[in-house]
Nucleic acid binder design. Structure first.
Ligand SMILES: [Zn+2]
Ligand SMILES: [Zn+2]
Ligand SMILES: [Zn+2]
Ligand SMILES: [Zn+2]
Lengths: 161, 161
DNA sequence: AATAAAATGTTATAATATTGCATTAGCGTG
DNA sequence: CACGCTAATGCAATATTATAACATTTTATT
């Protein structure tokens, strides 16, 4: 298995994410219900974007009851609203957000090969977009940047062939 | 009606686009068939992204025969392959490309209000993305930049309220 | 004309997402 | 505790976007 962005203790990613989510929901006085927790756990199973219906299947497997699509989508909406996950428009899929405490859109590097996603929020990209947009009198509200390419790990593997 | 990016002679946009397409297909020795022409004309009806099924409806209206979805999607695939249209992933919709002669991905400014799309291909954005990606050892292949915001025209209108 | 390749037609279905309404769970008030 | 309110979930149906599989037609080549 080499589907991690860089080798790392992913259980730590999961634990962190779930802890942050619990804390954040407490602080905001919103409810981190069972289904929301399950969906978030699914999304954090790895660093690859996961589709709504895959989440549905996963939950069906692990809990012997199959939630209907609206249930999953509502949980996803909640998580999106609270910045706990991001939606990757070009993939119709969702990834966990590594920093849900402050609202941001994020930029995503998607490896074509291992499908892992690296989330950034690079000022340099936001500035460049604003600068270019300004030349057209356009005011940026929500930039969506989803970059397909090849990650460090996968290029290393290719090189060693 | 104020759904044009800036006031302009849009018939000129259409005529230009269709002429470019014809010429380009001739040069590349690929066929600019009736259905492909109809679909491209639909896409160029205005500067707003248009969905595949909307295109289908439009063609059904104007020609009394309703193409099936695969017909429209195949025409769109052809147009995409030849750079004559772009797909806006975040909207599941398509816009005409203003410069199909050289291959490029393009950046899109989408007005939240009038839905018009401005296409750019700004070096400054591509550079910023590459720079940011490089810091993660990530090599960019296909950047996808779709920015929602507010265009000059719509802000003017808002200001005058 | 015979053949092959490309394009289109046709039917069915997959994959993603939402609407509308019923039911349940949680919570504060009296 | 009963009541009423709201948020959350369950559930059935359906909308929207996209593709698969195979038949037929058109076009180009020999
Ligand atoms: Zn991890
Ligand atoms: Zn990779
Ligand atoms: Zn125009
Ligand atoms: Zn506008």
């Amino acid at each position: 298995m080499h589907n991690m962005p860089q080798p790392h203790d992913h259980q730590h990613c999961i634990d962190d994410a779930m802890a942050r989510a619990r804390e954040l929901c407490l602080r905001r006085q919103v409810k981190f219900t069972r289904i929301r927790e399950q969906v978030l756990a699914c999304v954090w199973a790895n660093h690859q974007p996961v589709g709504a219906y895959t989440i549905l299947e996963e939950i069906a497997k692990e809990s012997d009851r199959r939630p209907a699509p609206p249930t999953v989508y509502r949980a996803l909406d909640f998580l999106l609203d609270n910045g706990l996950v991001h939606r990757i428009a070009s993939l119709n899929a969702f990834v966990g957000c590594k920093d849900p405490s402050h609202h941001h859109q994020g930029h995503f590097l998607i490896c074509r090969q291992c499908r892992n996603v690296i989330e950034l929020d690079a000022d340099i990209i936001n500035s460049a977009i604003s600068t270019a947009a300004t030349q057209y009198g356009f005011v940026v509200e929500t930039p969506c940047v989803e970059v397909v390419g090849c990650c460090a790990g996968c290029r290393e593997l290719s090189d060693n062939e």
